[in-house]
Design a protein around this nucleic acid. Sequence first.
DNA 1: CTGAAAGCGCTTACAG
DNA 2: CTGAAAGCGCTTACAG
Lengths: 338, 338
Amino acid sequence: MQPKIKDVAQRAGVSVTTVSRVLNGEKYVKDDLKSKVNKAIEELGYAPSQIARSLVRKKTNLIGVIVPDLTSSFYSTILSSIEEAASSNDYNLLVCNIIEDIDKELKYLTVFQEMRVEGIIIMHEKINEDIRSIIHKLNIPVIFSSVKPMDQEFTSIIIDDYKAAYEATKYLIDLGHEEIGFIGGDMRDITSGQNRYSGYRNALSDNKIKIVYENIRFGDYKVQSGYDQMKDLLSNKQPPTAVFAVSDDMAVGAMNCIRDQNLSVPDDISIIGFDGSQLTELVRPKLTSMEQPIQEMGKVTMAALLKQISHKEAPSEDIILEHKLVVRESCRTRNHKK
Amino acid sequence: MQPKIKDVAQRAGVSVTTVSRVLNGEKYVKDDLKSKVNKAIEELGYAPSQIARSLVRKKTNLIGVIVPDLTSSFYSTILSSIEEAASSNDYNLLVCNIIEDIDKELKYLTVFQEMRVEGIIIMHEKINEDIRSIIHKLNIPVIFSSVKPMDQEFTSIIIDDYKAAYEATKYLIDLGHEEIGFIGGDMRDITSGQNRYSGYRNALSDNKIKIVYENIRFGDYKVQSGYDQMKDLLSNKQPPTAVFAVSDDMAVGAMNCIRDQNLSVPDDISIIGFDGSQLTELVRPKLTSMEQPIQEMGKVTMAALLKQISHKEAPSEDIILEHKLVVRESCRTRNHKK
DNA sequence: CTGAAAGCGCTTACAG
DNA sequence: CTGAAAGCGCTTACAG
């Protein structure tokens, strides 16, 4: 059993009030008492119970985070920067890894409520009615990070997915490509599904390129689906000469598929990804990607959440961060041939 | 402000004791009262405070986890399976991402104590005296996952790193290689540093192969260091024909370095990694690796911890899991030449 | 500057 | 079957 404040008080020969005061760094404690107390704390290895403290202070310093998939390098990088920001603001993270498991998410949202977390960060946008309504009832600040669900009532920290996708596609067009394949995300996702798809389509039509539905496929953002969808695209009578995949993971899957068919990236097919995950630098050729400011996204997310928590502010406007095209080795002009 | 049990009691016209009883599923509550209470709970959106509950039950259902690097696919995969096991046992995870920051670790250990976590999982072995002594004083069950620090007093969930490294090296020897390079880890780490190094050396000497120190380098387990160390190895007068890197990340770095020098894996140089991370399947050629049972490791870690928590058992014996050589495409017999 | 007492939101004997 | 009261380990007015 851990020692309690009473034990410290007895050992130091003072009241618990006094112990509490030195614990909380209040002035108005005589030096000799203070040192007696500190000595007792040291000897006992005492650490005040945050549980008891939270109860009286009505402040838990806890933040709940819901991650769609911890093993994804995109999410784990955001989480890492969230953790850093939390830690330096004396907040602790309660993390929940839902793996497309809505029930688990519902359960965790309740757990968060029971734990009286001060804020919640959610990193996916497959929000159904149950979840939406529970979030509303919760009455706890919520920030969506990297996604924006339909619901307008919460703050999202995102990039302009439409514009980013538009520019990624435009980049391929500028390289001379006309048959440009697309490996999209889940169309139920507003930001990473619909918006990126629209960006792709509009870039094509704005440049008088016909949209060929055969060149359009949808995956689930993961490597394997990029591989599978690429395989599909390669089986077209006229396969695309460039492909835009809306996640780096899918782009890498597509690259692997191309290589496994003895074709070359970028000589035969150019590939551009999206996100700016660590993978971009790991694969060969290095992956050109439309990057999100992942680190910054975590930081800004925490900052916005802390602001809502401490100022008891209403949900603020969305914050749109800058995306950036990072050119590496996976794209080439169309006319280039070995 | 969240509603409290008193609010529910008033609304239902019963005592808080009765509300508490239906909350905790006790029998001996008349059905009509029970339904009144449930109705009030529903209407108020009430969820009992885990904080208050923890205080009286002296049970927080919290587990603290210290991860060396969240962005590493090895650790995030373990964490993911730990989270799953925790969640299904109604435990919540408080996660701390220390990035080689000993001060942060010390701070978090104290936070864990203050939060009265019921158990702690630590996934790195750079334990200094301060940390060691604090862990001892904590008097909270601790499990080391995937590592074994010198200190024998805590349970570790590990593989037999020596044997695994021995076998990885033996595999290269059996392929006919004699100049076998080694990219090791931090020699202050017992398991992943020293033991893997010994395995490598002994496999060589047991097979009458001279140990060439020029072929031995040490990195920090990350991709970049694999790249850098490989570059070093390639500058030897007689570069190795095969390299064993003690992490998949370093192995991938080494592969990239080799390719960037216009050499081929495995035609010019064979590479074998260690860990069994997701990267093995992502890179081309796919990486042959001596794999740890990462998923299982997480599961077994939680199981062992829960056992110590509930049975108040003393730290148990280490648990040694099975490693497994998974042959993919990055190694080839020595005599093979294009 | 110091301490006794009330209270945070629950659970759990205890009494009825 | 139900409720009043004590207590979990703290903090915070309040009084001195």
